[in-house]
């Protein structure tokens, strides 16, 4: 077969002529939703008012993008905006080594979703009980979605136990492992080093079972489905506590290292290491060691 023939075969796959109009109606209709959800604005507005009156507050590390919100350096900035995306800069998959008489090969790790972690801390200290209750109720109602000028986010809130700081996480970053074809997996082990981060694995489990959280997760080869399962990284309550106790905390404190180890039944072991690095603005990048994409 010639190249042109192969191309022609794939060329045959075409959307119908009306798909453009159908998509336009759906996409444009959705994209015209640019106002933030009332609760979010209400939270900020209430907190700002409280802080102005009471003169206390949680000093944010950087200004938020909304021009109505106060800028960095003032005590009125109560929303700590820790953007943003994990960008996997490298994927180790070259070379083999011998380790304790066992072949170790680099593990291919890919970013599962092209969206990042955005963490927003909302300070409700100084509010009345009814105001706090309203915010708690709204934020605790599970996953909610809202649109703002920067995009579309879906988040879940967590408290620090004192109900004074709500840390809302938007989107997650999932790491997926690409395993060797033709090899049977014995175990998959994932570990992280920082107390401020933790690993989550749930995809392989039944829908209503609790996801597994921890600093070390071991999944048997029988359970792990490399084509659909992944591991998430998220913050811990310790991070919440650190944010609430230390206004000037340096984000580099939250840096983490995640090690993935896959052991195959034939004795081969594959390892991959991902560094999660926060910059001074609270933006996180995930870097796979030993390899750089050019």
């Amino acid at each position: 077969m010639k190249k042109e023939e192969f191309i022609n075969i794939i060329d045959d796959i075409q959307p119908d002529i009306h798909m453009k109009n159908r998509l336009k109606a759906k996409v444009i209709g959705s994209a015209s939703c640019v106002k933030p959800k009332r609760i979010t604005r209400a939270v900020v507005a209430v907190c700002l008012a409280a802080i102005i009156v009471l003169g206390t507050g949680f000093v944010g590390k950087r200004p938020v993008s909304d021009p109505e919100k106060p800028t960095e350096g003032t005590t009125q900035n109560i929303v700590l905006d820790m953007m943003s995306g994990f960008i996997v800069l490298a994927s180790a998959c070259d070379g083999e080594t011998e380790e304790e008489n066992q072949t170790v090969i680099p593990l291919e790790i890919n970013e599962g979703y092209d969206c990042g972690i955005k963490l927003i801390a909302t300070d409700i200290r100084g509010l009345t009980d009814s105001e706090k209750e309203k915010i708690r109720t709204d934020l605790d109602n599970g996953i909610y979605a809202y649109c703002d000028e920067e995009g579309f986010f879906r988040g879940r809130s967590h408290t620090d136990g004192t109900d004074e700081i709500y840390l809302t996480r938007y989107s997650v970053n999932e790491f997926r492992l690409n395993l060797e074809e033709g090899r049977s997996v014995k175990t998959v082990t994932v570990k992280n080093t920082s107390e401020y981060g933790q690993l989550v694995y749930s995809v392989g489990r039944p829908v209503f079972s609790a996801p597994e959280h921890g600093h070390e997760i071991v999944v048997s080869g029988e359970e792990f489905n490399s084509k659909t399962d992944g591991f998430y990284w998220e913050h811990t309550d310790e991070m919440l506590k650190a944010l609430s106790e230390n206004n000037g905390i340096s984000f580099s404190v939250f840096n983490d290292t995640v090690t993935f180890t896959v052991e195959y039944t034939d004795g081969v072991k594959a390892t991959g290491v991902v560094d999660i690095v926060f910059n001074e603005n609270g933006e996180a990048t995930a870097i796979c060691k030993d390899y750089t994409l050019k």
Partner: peptide, 26 residues
């Protein structure tokens, strides 16, 4: 999308999702 999913309805759903994300995420 079609090569992944095998039918035009699912492929179109994916395109709607992708274009929506494109315009939302800016």
């Amino acid at each position: 999308s079609f090569l992944y999913l095998g039918n035009s309805a699912d492929a179109e759903d994916v395109l709607q999702d992708v274009f929506t994300k494109y315009f939302y995420n800016k």
